[in-house]
Amino acid sequence: MEVRTIKVFTTVDNINLHTQVVDMSMTYGQQFGPTYLDGADVTKIKPHNSHEGKTFYVLPNDDTLRVEAFEYYHTTDPSFLGRYMSALNHTKKWKYPQVNGLTSIKWADNNCYLATALLTLQQIELKFNPPALQDAYYRARAGEAANFCALILAYCNKTVGELGDVRETMSYLFQHANLDSCKRVLNVVCKTCGQQQTTLKGVEAVMYMGTLSYEQFKKGVQIPCTCGKQATKYLVQQESPFVMMSAPPAQYELKHGTFTCASEYTGNYQCGHYKHITSKETLYCIDGALLTKSSEYKGPITDVFYKENSYTTTIK
């Protein structure tokens, strides 16, 4: 009895394709271990004539594949690729409408935090270190965002349907971005203890939790000093293409032309909904596939993004 075979390709990165001759009487799992086709788990399936010449994702289970996976995804987590594939199996079914010149995501599976993050990423200057993220990001900007969303979920250790947080998501993504040249110098002034300067680099240099107003941050924000008295913390120097200011959701007025974009969060910790506000020729609110415009805006804002380049204080 002759062994019926077909020729397929296996890959971990969709760049390096490895030619395989597979036995049609055995499952993919018996031949390769966990195997995925377009995100779908085909591990328990036997090869079919229609699979001839198709590319299958496999887990990096030998040295060659491990090197290829690390170079593309910059992670050695053995569960990463499987999590990416199972997320992709959902995100490829989502709709990605162009809204006001940006790629958004039609609401499904509690994905409003991903839509808000995706919209924000198209408006701030950011370059990702893992080629996987950078490639998928370019495709997302062009309207094909399924891979990018699935990668975000995998890097953030999230599953489809789980509630997510924009600030946490951005923080994970910033860790995989090139923020080497970003720098922030802060000064804390206390009447009792004097003053202390701190220099922050990388992710810490672009994120701040405690106030939404970048102007206020430049002037000074009140913080408790270690001595128990009130101290003032203010920005001395900022070198970065953008800054992200966050605070627990509270009524906040966004003035046209003073910011790049913002995240609105309605609801409580267990259950809520994100919308995205962007400042173009007027203010726009993007909620999944829905767009509304207004000249002014007041609502429960939790993150505001500002364009920056270089700032030095005039406070002496």
Rank of each mutant, 00 (worst) to 15 (best):
Y297S: 05
P97N: 11
R4G: 12
K92C: 02
K293E: 13
T260K: 05
G272P: 08
V189H: 09
G228F: 02
K307C: 11
N16H: 05
H48P: 09
G267W: 12
K293H: 08
Y57M: 09
D165W: 09
H90I: 09
M170N: 00
C261T: 05
Q122P: 02
E253N: 14
A142Y: 13
T302G: 06
S181F: 11
T266P: 06
N178V: 07
G101V: 00
K219W: 07
Y84N: 01
Q134E: 14
I315M: 15
G164F: 03
F148S: 00
L88A: 05
K293W: 06
L235I: 14
L59R: 08
Q98I: 07
A146T: 02
P34C: 02
H273L: 05
R184S: 13
L200T: 12
F80Y: 01
N187Y: 10
T27N: 09
Y284W: 12
C190D: 00
K127R: 13
M1L: 11
N157G: 13
A145Y: 05
I105E: 03
G272I: 03
F174C: 03
K316Q: 15
R139S: 13
V236H: 07
S263N: 15
F56Y: 02
T232W: 11
V206C: 09
E2P: 09
T211N: 12
M244Q: 10
T258V: 07
L186N: 06
I301L: 05
G161Q: 06
Y208P: 04
K158W: 02
Y234P: 04
D180S: 14
T232P: 04
E253D: 04
G164I: 08
T19I: 12
I15K: 15
A150S: 02
D77V: 03
N129P: 02
C271A: 14
F305S: 05
L151C: 01
G143F: 01
Q98D: 13
Q31G: 05
F80L: 02
M85V: 04
N157H: 14
F80R: 00
H276M: 04
M85K: 12
P241W: 02
F70I: 09
A289R: 07
K233A: 14
G267P: 12
L235E: 05
F174H: 00
S240K: 04
Q222W: 06
Q270M: 14
Y297C: 07
T159V: 10
Q20C: 12
S295V: 11
F80I: 03
V236C: 05
C285V: 14
G39M: 05
C285H: 09
A150V: 00
I15F: 15
T64I: 11
G82Q: 13
M244V: 08
V304E: 07
E215D: 15
N16Y: 06
I15G: 01
E2V: 08
K280W: 09
Q30C: 14
D63C: 10
N178W: 02
Q196L: 10
L186S: 08
G33E: 00
N187G: 09
Y96L: 02
A40R: 14
H18V: 13
S50E: 11
E2D: 12
G220A: 05
Q238M: 04
K201W: 11
N147Y: 15
K201D: 06
I301W: 04
M209W: 10
L291E: 09
H273M: 02
A289G: 10
G202R: 03
T120W: 06
Y214V: 07
E215W: 07
P131D: 00
A154T: 07
T19E: 12
D23G: 10
L163T: 15
S50P: 08
D23H: 12
F70M: 13
Q197L: 14
E308Q: 12
L173E: 01
Q195C: 15
L118W: 01
A231K: 08
L235S: 04
A136N: 09
F128C: 00
S171R: 13
K127W: 05
Y96N: 00
L121E: 03
Y306A: 05
A154R: 02
T91V: 07
V22S: 04
L88V: 06
T116Q: 08
I105K: 02
T258E: 10
Q20N: 06
F242P: 05
S240A: 08
S246R: 04
S50T: 11
I286R: 06
R184C: 09
Q98H: 12
Y269P: 07
Q270C: 11
A177V: 09
N61L: 13
F9H: 08
Y311Q: 10
A289H: 15
I152E: 00
G288C: 00
N147L: 01
F128S: 01
M85G: 04
K218G: 02
T11C: 03
I152H: 01
D63Q: 02
P248V: 09
F259M: 05
T278M: 14
K46D: 09
A150Q: 01
Y57I: 14
C285L: 08
V67Q: 13
N178G: 06
T232K: 09
T35V: 15
D287Q: 06
S279R: 00
N111A: 01
Q238D: 03
Y274N: 03
K183Y: 08
P300I: 14
L179V: 06
V206N: 05
F148K: 00
H90G: 12
G299C: 03
H90R: 13
V189D: 10
A145S: 03
Y73D: 02
L121V: 13
Y172R: 13
P34V: 07
L65N: 09
N187W: 06
R66C: 08
N147K: 12
S50Y: 11
N187T: 09
C271Q: 13
